[in-house]
Amino acid sequence: MTEHTHTTCEELLDSLSAYIDGALAPELCRELEKHLAECNNCRVVLNTTKRTIDLVQTPLEKPDLPEDVRERLFKRLNLDDYLTRKSK
């Protein structure tokens, strides 16, 4: 184990994904947060990365299957009888 207590921008970047996903040990989180409080650039990287992930998860970015595509799929799979059963 290393002794250093100062997280660098480099180290923050390495742990960024895990931090965003909440997969980091509380101790490490505190270390990173200490760095974040002092480092504007890392704060911006964190905020904008988080926001990017939020955006791709919005319903607008996750459209449902178009009805005609569903119809052709069901026909191809010989599921014609179940076409009208879509629970919505």
């Binding site: 996750k62 299957l65 569903r70 069901f74 599921l79 179940y82």
Partner: peptide, 18 residues
């Protein structure tokens, strides 16, 4: 069971198409 297969298709066809 065809109906059950149809349920599977409806559950996952949107993400797979995307």
């Amino acid at each position: 069971d065809r109906a059950e297969f149809a349920r599977l298709v409806d559950e996952y066809s949107s993400p797979i198409y995307r």
